[in-house]
């Protein structure tokens, strides 16, 4: 069963073609990796998916819903969650508040109830707190719970961002370079969390990453993009030996 289809999408900024006819699909419980050199258009694909950019042509369908013209918060409500390449957390808020913010589209009370903090608002807030604590438990963030995230080490911030995406209870998770700038130990921790997410939560994941070791170990299928175009799509083992991929990464001698 296909969760996401991305069909022949074109996105350009003036003369620059960021995405030039990329097509792929992601299945249930699949860990789909997108790799490619810098500037290949990987993050642009994510920005199209989450509604930050609007493509000029093409069609994106997520669980049967057409994403065309939808705003970011509407796409989030459909169940798409993402992390960012450069951590985009709310630095002044605590870990707990950041995670609870991830649950924003599950809130079921209005502004008036919030002003009074009675009945529904209070019950709802406590229920969401419980959910946020489950994420804290899952990602082992207990000791950081009350810290403003701006004060936390980079590796922990990356984990909090993953937690915020998980708190949304998504149906598809987009991870934009989850281990960029991390050391060996942090990378292995993150790999373990990603595998846990896929196996325990049965979540399809799209992963953009430069760490080839991680991609080859974790991914079910890999797509290689370069200059906004698909170079190859296939199993990690096939991709490694594809001449077109080697050419994109290393170039060829004439």
């Amino acid at each position: 069963m296909t969760v996401l289809t991305f069909e022949d999408v074109h996105l350009s900024f003036a003369g620059v073609k960021a995405i030039d006819g990329v097509t792929f699909h992601v299945g249930q419980n699949e860990l789909f990796a997108i790799i490619g050199p810098n500037g290949a258009g990987k993050t642009s694909i994510f920005n199209v998916l989450s509604g930050v950019y609007r493509p000029q042509a093409g069609r994106v369908t997520f669980n049967g819903a057409d994403l065309k013209g939808k705003r970011p918060h509407e796409i989030a409500a459909l169940g798409m969650a993402r992390t960012f390449q450069n951590v985009e957390l709310f630095a002044n808020l605590t870990v707990l508040e950041n995670l609870t913010l991830g649950r924003h589209h599950h809130l079921r009370y209005g502004t008036l109830a919030a002003l009074l903090w009675l009945g529904k608002a209070r019950r709802d807030e406590i229920a969401h707190r419980r959910k946020a604590e489950e994420i804290i438990d899952f990602l082992e963030l207990e000791q950081w719970r009350r810290y403003p995230v701006g004060l936390l080490p980079y590796g922990v911030q990356k984990r909090v961002e993953l937690g915020r995406a998980l708190a949304m209870e998504p149906k598809l998770l987009l991870l934009d370079e989850p281990v960029a700038g991390m050391n060996q130990e942090e990378t292995e921790d993150m790999a373990r969390y990603i595998l846990d997410i896929r196996d325990e939560l049965q979540l399809p994941i799209i992963l953009v990453e430069h760490d080839m070791g991680l991609v080859m170990d974790l991914a079910d299928r890999v797509m290689v993009v370069d200059f906004g175009q698909t170079v190859a799509t296939g199993l990690p083992s096939d991709i490694q030996h594809d001449p077109a991929v080697i050419k994109a990464y290393l170039g060829v001698t004439s």
């Binding site: 970011p72 989030a76 709310f90 924003h104 809130l107």
Partner: peptide, 23 residues
């Protein structure tokens, strides 16, 4: 201290990220 207030601070700190997480 409610979701509304959290949404306010999210918009103040990073409005694009706020939209992407559903605000």
């Amino acid at each position: 201290r409610s979701g509304v207030g959290r949404a306010f601070t999210a918009i103040r700190d990073r409005d694009i990220a706020a939209g992407v997480i559903g605000v």
